[in-house]
Amino acid sequence: MSSAASRMLPPTGRMLPPAGRLGRLRRAGTDAGSLRLIERHARAYRHAWLVFASGVFEPLLYLLSLGLGLGVLIGKVPGPGGRLVPYREFVAPGLLAVSSMNGAMYDSTFNVFFRLKYAKLYDAILATPIRPAQLALGEIGWALIRGAIYAVAFTLVMLALGLVHSPWAVLAVPGAVLIGFAFAAVGMAGTTYMKSWQDFDYVILASMPLFLFSATFYPLSVYPRPLQVIIECTPLYQGVVLLRDLVLGAPGPGLLWRAAYLAALGLAGLLVTGRRLARLLLV
């Protein structure tokens, strides 16, 4: 997936490989560079497997407390197309979307900032044949692999709890990865502009309202119309609806638009990140 995506990328950064066919061939040959970074992360996390595993449990705890706990009090709410569904079935896909966002943001903001400014990881890597755009791709690829593992675990738990009623739910995993892609790329692009840890308040400032108001915990219909329009523009809302439609077995053509929107955000973030890393590190 990562090497395919990198071929779609126009060259970024100031350290460009040679132009022309030969250059493109050489590029394709060394695009494995982003895989090397993923390999490095896989190795580093062997020393921190508990941190890795905790990512599985966080959304599950939410599911148990909100879905099963609160769900008993709430009863049924309007789901896709206005059809009434039990609250725990309503909230579960929303939680999957939220945890995909949070996981991606965490990887691509805090972790990337640390590697960029403190661990000097990228300085070390750019002394090797690896290029800035490959770094960006590798970081995002890693965030996606992690996100995919968590999404599979969460989907299996939904299945076990009887919250899945449609084979479309299989697509919830790639859907969750797509949400992760959008937020990881945008988060990482934002991180390249950050100067200090204080700037991370902006990350929280941006993700907290998304987390709370993107129709994750209750249907959009509770809001007045103007507010609904604003919320419909946010990527997390689109992700929540995407996953909810899939898990509850009501996919429509709108699904493609939502997916395209998230993919476009991710690609834009990826491009910006590659350029910014070159500008920050190759001085």
């Binding site: 494995a32 560079g33 090397r36 390999e39 490095r40 190795r43 580093a44 070390a124 090797t128």
Partner: peptide, 20 residues
């Protein structure tokens, strides 16, 4: 610019992989 999350040996293993 050593990789502080890795061991001494892993630093060389991973760095060699960056060169493919």
């Amino acid at each position: 610019t050593l990789d502080v999350e890795l061991t001494v040996r892993e630093n060389l293993l991973v760095y060699g992989r960056y060169f493919g």
